[in-house]
Each structure stands twice: as C-alpha cells, then as structure tokens.
Design a protein around this nucleic acid. Structure first.
Lengths: 371, 371
DNA sequence: TCGCAAATGT
DNA sequence: ACATTTGCGA
C-alpha cells in the first residue's frame, strides 16, 4: 500500500496544472523512493517525466511498487477541493481501484476526504537515456515563459542557439520576426558531465566525494565550475527571499536543494528500469486513511528573482522547436524559479523544472530542416 | 530613415490598445516633428488622429518624411513582446518594407529585436478643420469612461448637453433611462478661441504673452493649439501624481476621484454627505447620478488641481452620439488622466486625450433626429 | 489571486 | 452577433 503525506496540497495542484494539458491519463508509479510519472503527450511528440521524492513528503510509505492509473482531469478536479496549504495525504491499498485523498487544514478541524477512481493504463514506460548535453542554460523560469509566449505570438517555432555570444531565441513569422538575446558576463562555462555534477553537488553539500549517488559510482569527476555557479545563484535567491521564512540553515540547505535533486534524478535510470520492469497495470484497491501533515522543513522555497541566468556550452548548439510545446512546458513556471534547458544538436531538448520535492522534466525533439 | 527611441514601450502599447479596435491598418506618417497617424475607423463613422511628438522621444531622428504602413494587429503583437518599461527603439530605412523594433530591458542584458513587415496603405489623409467649438468639457478620463460604459448598458446613444447648469449625459433605454449631470461652481467659462487659449496658457506658465508658437501668425492654429494643450496636460499629470504622494492636496483628490474611492473620502464631513448622496444613487441605477462637484475653483486649476473637471461654453450645446463609439474611444483612458470633449451643434464631437508625448483624438459625428 | 482580454461555441 | 469559457497578465 501507499501512504504519502504532502505538506502542501498546492504542490500537487501546481504539478497537475503543469502537465494536465499535455497528458490526460497516466500511471503514477509508486515505490519506496517516491512517485514517478512518465508519459508521452497526447500527440506523442513530447515526453513528460515527473518525480516526487519520498523524502519530500512529510510521511511516505510504500510497501511495494505499484502503478496508480490516474485520469489527470479527475485528479485536478479533486485537488481543486483542497486549499493550497492543506496537508494532503494520498493513500492506496494494494490492488486498489481508488486513490484516497485526505485534506487537512492546518489550523482547523476540517478534514476532507475524497476517493478518486483509478484506471488501468498501459504504460509504455520508455527509458530515457542519460545524456551529457553540449549546452546548458539556467534561467529564471518566468523569463523562459515570457520568451516562448512572446515568440509564439509571431511564429510556430523557435530556434534556440547557444554560442559564445549568449543564448538566442529566434522566431520567424508571417508578419514579424523576433529574436531575443540573453548575454552574460564572461565566457560560457564548460558543461559538466553528469558525474562531474554529482560530485560537485556532493561537494557543495559538504559531503565528500562518495555518496549515495551511486550506482555507477565510478568516476566521479567533478567540476567546480558548475558549482560555483550554483552557489552564486542560490545566494542571490536566498537573499531575496529567504528572509521571509527562515534564516537558519539557509546556505547549507539551499545549496543542497536544487541541484541535488537533479543529480538524483539523473541516476534514477536504475530506478526507472526497475520500475518499468515491475510495471503492471492492475486494479487498485481502495482504501482510505488520513494522515496529517506537519509542516515540513522545506527550506526549499527557493526563489528566484534576479539573475538566475547562466549558461555553459561545450560546442555551439542550434536547434529548432515547436513553440506550442514550449509554451505548454512553461506552465511549470509556478513550481520553481529557475528552469534548466539542456541541449545537444539533433537531440531532444530537456526542459527541467526542479523544485524542492522533485522535478518535472519535458523532452522535446527538435524540428529538422526548416519546417 | 527613421530612428525613434521611446523611453517606455508601455506608451506605445497603450496607444495601440486604444486604437486597434477602431482601425486595423494605418500609415504612421513620420517627419521631423514626430509621428502622425490618421484614419477612419473600419466602418467609416469615426476618425482617429494620433500624434507623437519628436520631443517626446528619448531620441528622434527622421531624415525625411515617410509613411509606414502598419497593420495594427501585427504591431500590437510585436509590442506585447516588450515589457512596459523597456526602452523601445523604432527604426525604418528609407523605402523599407520592415519596421525594426528593439527592446532593451533597463537593467539587464536582455535585448530583443523584432522586424515587422510593413504594407502599402492608401492613405486618405483628410484634413481636419481647425474649429473653434462652442463648448469644451475637461474631465477625468476615468469618469468619462465610467459614464459612457454605464450608459451603454441602458441604451444605444447618449445625449451630451452643455448648459449653464452643467454637463449632462443622458441616455434612454428600454428598461431604464439614465442621466448624469456634472456641475461646477460658478458660471461656465466662456470658451476661448484658440488664440486666446494660447495666450492664456502662456500666462499660466508664467511666460509672458508672446510665445514661440508663432510661426505663421494665424493659420497654423492647429499646431499651436496642440502645443499648448500638451503643455497643459503635462501640468495636469504632474499634479495628479503628486497628489498620490503628498497629502496636502487631498481635497482636490477626493473631488476628482470617482465613486470607487469612497473609502478615502471618509475623513471629511462634507465628503461624507456627498457620499451618501452617491450611495443612494448607486442603489437605483436608473436614476440620474449626481454630479460630482468639484469644489475647486478655476484658479487652482492652473496649478494644482487639474480640476479635473471644468467646462466652458459660448452657447447651449446638445448633441447625440453613439455610445458604442464613445466606449471605444474611452479605451484611451490609460493614457492620461483627463479627457477633453469639444462640441458645437451639428458638428462632430472631438474627444481629445492629450498625454505627455502627444495625443489621441477621436472625431464622431452626432446623430441627427432621434435615431 | 483577481481582473481583463481573446478565442470559441451557440 | 452575443455570450460564455478559458487563458493570460497585472
């Protein structure tokens, strides 16, 4: 059975808002490490991968892996019945055919409980290759959203080009062409490999070289360049926002936040494989239960406002994408202040929204030629 | 070639929002004095004239006059890609078939550049006669907007009547009639001729009687008028802004504001009385509204108080107009705090929104009989 | 989170 | 052509 208590129902609501237009039905694969969802969009052009870490929940228990086949519209409806700051507990018995959701208002005696029917969904869980990209751009998620929204008013597609000059988004339309250039001071950094990043993160966290990151734990090359970058940005964020919440562990925690997740995500290939192996779609039993949710120590509120822009490149990259999809991806903006774009020529773009308790990643194949 | 840099892209955005529903394509005529646009609305009932003065730009250069045929929808789209406070530079080569727009965020390394296709438009630039009107009403633009919007819910047309009693807007509908009377203390002023106005403005400015306006003595009335008007409104704007910051003139403020501001009015008996009067009206929508009453006297107008309401008349004027158009005109409200209505019997109404860097003027022929 | 505008359906 | 609903922006 699954029992997972989230401190803020708002997290789930935002998550659903972000993906529900792209995907109508999907399996939430539950296992001891958390919840994962992976699905092609309805037109099978883009791929969405969501991960909610077990550690991001206030309480998390999953006895054995199971898929929960959810109609996202239904789940959205049910989630609308929760206030953003309600604690939200998801429960499902083994073989359950319903998902039980309990909302508890933080300071009241109000407890709402919903049972949502589950469905059997053929999951075509595709492995996502763990790629090293030639260019990585980290920017404020709101700015990315603005750019793709603006350009989508002009044309159908956008060419994203990363060069020493900066990052350029250019679109051509019938009545107008547009081009936005984001520059940064200094040279672009080199892009780290995943391993390097892992090591780097670990270092930032104060952990030494080895960790839990493991599976392939062989060659932790690390990169510091990246690290510094990250640090810098976080500091900025914290200054800006953290005051509002708590001050104490900011540095430490903040650092570990965001990118930490990334690395984990990177490694979850193993998990993914495992999961997909297990994957079966069965009916789920229903059961209700309610949890309560304390307020978690999410330092993760990290916010961004200012210069969260940075990029690195190993080689010049120029790719063209459908703006329609990018605009859709940018619905995840409310989840976190920064977004990371990772690209290599002729390879699908990865748009990565990494928030405290997990991530939403979108993959989109580039257009070829000049369609 | 043309190169014009506007400090705030927002100015252009508002301008376009104001006129784009009335006109779909128009020539922006560029010359050394600035940009001008003149067009009949799509149904050829109303006429719109826009002027942006060269002096209102941060930089302005136009080697030789040329028309830029613009599709306003396209321009609107392109302008949506600018943030309101971006600097916006318009560039067009001689004989160019594109207009180049560059947006520079004030504090960042973001530069966006757009090329918008131009079109050839037959310009039927009609001369607008330079008329002396029998009645002139200056009022808060928001109030005008409110009045025409309110009345448009009742009927198709509004009769605007200027008499010694005040300015009345009256509409008759199937289920209700409405009438709003705006009064002012004292007698209406006489409407000055253009020349007189010039002189008056100069005096108010502290300048003595002669001005620079003079180029050609008599005929260029239009020009002069414009100039003065511009000046005047600048004063107005400043005053208004000041009010928001400094408190001393709050009386004025209360007067000039609309119903919405009730809460603020609370501190003064007189105001309270006035308010209760208004409230009653609110309860019965079909009754005539009460006049707001500026307790400002003219003199103040000049300096501090843009009395936001004032009027002058040489003879009784009563004209009927289509509310649909007036509602449309009132989209210009965001450009400036005051609007001026100028009327003579049987002559098209002039609705004049004069903002710091130029103006938008609408002309609308009165209805005849009781259509 | 609320309001305004644009797009779609009746 | 008008009204309603959805999406986007402030």
């Amino acid at each position: 059975m699954l029992e997972a208590k989230l401190a803020e129902a708002g997290t789930l609501k935002k998550l659903l808002d972000a993906i529900k237009e792209l995907v109508t039905d999907a399996n939430f694969e539950c296992n001891e490490e958390g919840l994962n969802l992976q699905a092609m969009d309805n037109s099978h052009v883009a791929l969405v991968a969501v991960h909610l870490e077990a550690a991001g929940f206030k309480r998390y228990r999953c006895d054995r892996p199971m898929p929960l086949g959810v109609n996202l519209s239904s789940l959205t409806k049910v989630l609308k019945c929760a206030k953003d700051d309600d604690e939200c507990t998801l429960k499902a018995a083994d073989e359950a055919d319903v998902l039980n959701l309990v909302y508890e208002a933080k300071n009241s005696d109000r407890i709402a409980e919903y049972d949502m029917k589950l469905m059997d969904i053929d999951s075509d869980t595709l492995g996502i290759p763990d790629t090293d990209y030639d260019a990585e751009v980290t920017m404020p998620s709101a700015e990315f959203a603005r750019i793709v929204r603006d350009l989508s008013a002009l044309g159908e597609s956008v060419r994203i080009e990363v060069s020493k000059e900066g990052v350029r988004f250019a679109s051509e339309g019938e009545s107008a062409n547009g081009s936005i250039l984001l520059k940064k001071d200094g040279e672009p950094d080199r892009v780290l490999t995943d391993k390097e990043k892992k090591a780097q993160k670990a270092r930032e966290r104060g952990e030494e070289p080895e960790e839990d990151d493991e599976e392939e734990g062989d060659e932790p090359k690390e990169k510091k360049i990246k690290k510094e970058k990250v640090k810098k940005e976080k500091d900025v964020d914290e200054d800006v926002e953290m005051d509002q919440e708590e001050k104490d562990e900011e540095e430490f925690k903040a650092n570990s936040d965001d990118e930490e997740e990334k690395s984990e995500a990177g490694d979850d290939d193993e998990e993914r494989a495992a999961r997909s192996g297990r994957k079966r779609q069965t009916a789920r039993p229903s059961l209700p239960r309610k949890p309560k949710r304390p307020r978690v120590r999410e330092r993760r509120t990290r916010r961004t406002s200012p210069a969260l822009f940075n990029f690195g490149m190993n080689s010049h990259v120029s790719l063209t994408f459908s703006l329609k999809y990018l605009v859709n991806f940018s619905k995840s903006t409310s989840l976190t202040n920064t977004v990371q774009l990772r690209m290599s020529n002729e390879v699908p773009l990865l748009v990565d929204y990494d928030f405290g308790q997990g991530f939403v990643r979108y993959y989109l194949a580039p257009k070829i030629g000049d369609e």
